[in-house]
Amino acid sequence: MTTPFTIGIDAHKSTHTLVALDSAGKVCGERTVRAVSEGHAEALRWALKFGTDLEWAVEDCRGYTRLLEQDLLAANQRVIRVPLILMAHTRKAARTPGKSDAIDATAVARAAQRERDLPVAFHDEKTWQLKLLMDRRDDLVTQRVAFTNRLIQRLHLLDPARARPRDLTRASNRHPLGEYLSTRPGLEAELASEELADIDRFSRNIDALTKSIGDHVREHGSTLTHIPGCAEITAARFISAVANISRFRNEAAFARYVGVAPQPEWSGLSRGRMQLSRGGNRQLNSALHTIAVVQIRLDGPGRAYYLRRIEEGDTKAGARRCLKRKISRTVYTRLRADYRRATETGRAPNHHRD
């Protein structure tokens, strides 16, 4: 059934621009509100002029839309997340030239009307906290890599003949390097010591976050860690990104979300040819790749399946992609089972926070 009105939103830090479209895609109204809870309440009052059967379409950029989504979901509104690439394609195909907040909001709404299987916003406190911890850990890991690369370059300037330092994520490798730098004179050595201290601080914070994330995963009751190759950090990656597995209508939709569903690439005589998808959530795709690589190295069902695909004529990369799809089915099944068990025991989250 088609929703009578779709409210498209172009979100910014300070303001949100809203455009109301009827079921035929005709623009029926426009409004700009402040990006605060009072402005969101004003937007809701304005939208209710068009009726109570509404859907809200927002660009999938939660840095700008998280509070907006929370306020709308608290008011029992249906919120659709539109991927940025869909909105961009819709705007290019529009008859209205140029760019403005209203044009962008209209593009968001029309993309939501055209694609009826887009993800619905979902928020629960536990998965949101896990996402915050994962984001913080990812930021620290990125900074540690940057400082490590800078330190390696500085060490080369100090002594080109010295061997490159071993894995600096380990404290046992950082201590000898610190002792070496303390014996070297000059500003380069002093700066290198400071960078090594920063790496040490990042590593301690990362270790603390890793422990906290593991505690959250165990508290969540996830069975993803029972999958060979899926450690607690990988499980947390899936839990925090998926949030609500019931929003996927089937396993194929989940496979598209994680980027392991091939897409058609044929015309005429090439009928049936498929192409590797480069879309989907790349972090989850990377997590599946990690699990696949571990399973290939282990002596188990994953390795047996991988070797059988190669014997049947697949390349190593092709066999690995097939294994990733197989693993995605297992991940989907376990997420569904975990959610069903949480629902039966009354531990399922309320669907109004992320």
Score class of each variant (00 low, 15 high):
D22C: 06
D60S: 12
I296S: 02
D22L: 08
V258S: 00
D71G: 03
A163L: 14
I103F: 08
G186I: 08
A241R: 01
G63N: 07
T148Y: 00
V294S: 10
T142I: 03
E125D: 15
P165Y: 10
R341G: 03
V27E: 14
L335G: 03
N244F: 00
T106W: 06
T52L: 10
D60Y: 03
L84P: 14
T183Q: 13
E55D: 13
M1R: 13
T6I: 11
R256Q: 07
P185F: 05
P97H: 06
A192C: 12
R329S: 05
H351G: 15
W266A: 14
R249A: 15
C28H: 07
D135P: 06
E344I: 08
G29V: 07
L168H: 00
A94I: 08
R166N: 13
E312A: 14
S267A: 11
R334F: 10
D159V: 12
K211C: 01
I310Y: 00
H123L: 12
T223K: 06
L72E: 11
E30W: 02
S182V: 00
G313P: 13
V27T: 14
R249F: 11
S222I: 00
R91S: 06
H156F: 15
E59M: 03
K13V: 05
L284D: 00
D104E: 08
P165T: 04
K126G: 08
R31F: 11
W46A: 01
P301I: 04
V217K: 01
T225M: 06
G268N: 04
E312H: 11
L323P: 07
D117C: 09
R271E: 12
H40C: 07
P228L: 04
E59F: 05
G318Y: 08
G346P: 07
D22M: 08
G221W: 10
L187N: 13
E265Q: 10
P301Y: 02
E251V: 13
H40R: 04
G29A: 01
L130V: 11
T225F: 01
D159I: 14
D53I: 08
A24Y: 14
L209E: 00
E194H: 15
L132I: 13
E42H: 10
V33K: 01
A11M: 04
G300M: 04
A171V: 14
A337I: 00
H156Y: 15
